Simulated scan of single mutants.
Amino acid sequence: MGRVTSRTPSIRVEITAGGEPRTTSRPDTLAVEEPLEIRVSGVSVTVTMRTPGDDFDLTVGNLLTEGVLRHATDVQQLMHCLDEDESGSPTYNVVDVTLAPGVVPDLDRAARSGYQSSACGVCGKTSIDAITATSPYAVATDPVALDPAVVAGLPDALREHQKVFDRTGGLHAAGIFTASGEALVVREDVGRHNAVDKAVGWAGREGLLPLSGHVLVVSGRASFELVQKAVMAGLPALVAVSAPSSLAADLATRSGLTLVGFARPPRMTVYAGAHRLGW
């Protein structure tokens, strides 16, 4: 399996009181970033830049949250292909998915997956309509009630599980929590969307989808793409350390998701679904 961190030469620069730079050469620990190609029955579906580890969870989560597959049970087998680098060493950077008998993937959706990025330039209404029409779960009907004090503290609870971030300072995190604040799973990755896919994929492989009554917590901002992934996993709430985008708030409102940003105790800002917090 690929490494999660790597030691890389660096020069530490400190500006002295007199304005002169003082330099120290030293190796630094960085998060590894490598491509992962996902294939379905031998057909390449997507390539994502990720931190190696939990690749099977990432694969299942990506296929579910992008709408290529409907259920985790659509996957019969996952395996790393024996791809090699220039030196002939295995990279473990390709995962091939064998589908259960009778399952037909939506490969057209895979080909259009770029529209789910907040930077793609596609009409917002078109994107929102596409997600609300294809999600297999109706999060708007989820009756879970959330304690504001618990919700505000979720980013701190997430931070306690960010072990690789402590070593590198370069990874995002995503966690699935119960309404009472208990962490079911936390995953880290150089890409925030990959961290979410790893967490959702784990839940799918554990037979926990839809994630009714649970909360997705992310270490950065809440983009349209992350709201989409929460809705596709049946999560009724998304809590972010930073701000949401306008399209993320629109999608949350349309889909009935509770969206919270700037969650840093004792404050937070609610952008959608305030009824679950008592308002």
Rank of each mutant, 00 (worst) to 15 (best):
V4H: 10
S6E: 15
S6W: 05
T8L: 12
I11Y: 07
R12Q: 12
R12P: 00
V13Y: 03
E14N: 09
E14M: 01
G18H: 09
G18V: 01
G18K: 12
P21S: 09
P21F: 06
P21Q: 11
P21V: 09
R22C: 02
T24W: 02
T24H: 09
T24N: 06
S25G: 07
S25H: 13
R26C: 03
R26Q: 15
R26M: 14
R26I: 14
P27Y: 07
T29V: 15
L30T: 13
L30W: 07
A31C: 09
A31R: 08
E33R: 15
E37C: 03
E37R: 13
E37M: 10
E37V: 15
E37I: 08
I38D: 01
I38L: 05
I38K: 00
R39P: 01
R39V: 01
S41T: 11
S41M: 09
S41D: 13
S41P: 00
V43Y: 14
V43D: 13
V43W: 10
S44N: 05
S44G: 14
S44Q: 11
S44K: 15
S44Y: 00
V45M: 08
V45C: 04
T46F: 00
T48P: 00
T48R: 15
M49S: 06
M49H: 09
T51N: 07
T51I: 03
P52R: 08
G53Y: 05
D54S: 14
D55Y: 04
F56R: 05
D57E: 14
L58N: 03
T59W: 04
T59V: 13
V60Y: 02
V60L: 13
G61I: 02
